[in-house]
């Protein structure tokens, strides 16, 4: 599904080029949940941005989704890819304040001209445990509930790949676990490839596979969080 090969990206700070990613190679199959663990500044967000393909392009290597190179997509293909094939789960802050749970979660369906978008999103929200909060405004929801609305938004158009960037960053432990369990179950049910970028060691427990990113390089995850850098190679 997702295939990243020898990916490198440098950020320019003035005249200095700082490496953000350096030769990253990984693969996530449909229905698989891969966690990408790394401290702040390790390059996780850069990797997520390269998968989204909207803000930056790689200096080297490729990101392929279903065999299509994201960086080589035309503008139209890119928009279509982000709307129908990719779901991005970020901070609940992206939700539009003032909108109801149904409204906020159905934005992507509306963009895709789905008829009765606010009705179509209801089963997903109910599956996420928001059946009795459908018409509550975003500000009236708890952080955990908001995060579930974000998940619904990402999954609403039926993408094959979901990328989650620190989805539990603003949640307490209990809520984090609930949200991650839900996310894992939903992706399995829908046979969706899920890549989770996190610095939370507890979050990785939900993943089928964990990789560690440090200083832009990928290594095997060590449970004691002192990873041994390995040759960048695709996981089994």
């Amino acid at each position: 599904m997702l295939e990243i090969r020898d990916l490198a990206k440098h950020h320019k700070l003035g005249r200095v080029a700082v490496p953000a990613l350096d030769g990253v190679t990984l693969r996530v199959a449909r229905g698989q949940f891969v966690a990408l663990y790394g401290p702040s500044g390790s390059g996780k967000t850069t990797l997520v941005n390269l998968i989204v393909g909207l803000r930056i392009a790689p200096d080297r290597g490729s990101v392929k989704v279903d065999g299509r190179d994201v960086a080589a997509m035309s503008r139209k293909e890119g928009d279509e890819y982000r709307l129908h094939h990719l779901g991005v789960i970020g901070h609940p802050g992206i939700l539009q304040p003032g909108a109801t749970a149904v409204g906020a979660a159905s934005v992507r369906l509306r963009m895709g001209d789905v008829r009765h978008a606010d009705r179509a999103i209801v089963p997903l929200l109910q599956r996420l445990g928001l059946g009795d909060r459908l018409h509550h405004k975003v500000e009236q929801l708890s952080m955990g509930e908001r995060q579930r609305v974000v998940i619904a938004l990402a999954l609403s158009t039926g993408p094959q790949l979901v990328v989650a960037d620190e989805p539990t960053g603003s949640l307490d432990t209990e809520n984090s676990r609930k949200v991650l369990a839900l996310l894992r179950d939903l992706c399995r049910e829908r046979h969706v490839a899920l890549l989770l970028a996190t610095h939370d060691p507890e979050a990785v427990e939900f993943a089928d596979e964990v990789l560690e990113l440090r200083d832009g390089r990928l290594g095997a995850y060590a449970a004691d969080r002192s990873p041994v850098l390995a040759e960048s190679s695709p996981p089994d």
Binding site: Q96, G98, R110, V138
Partner: peptide
């Protein structure tokens, strides 16, 4: 996109104080 959807997205945008 339908006008109602445009309006919906716009309302969300201006929802932030």
């Amino acid at each position: 996109m339908k006008l109602s959807s445009v309006r919906y997205i716009y309302e969300g945008h201006i929802g932030a104080r």
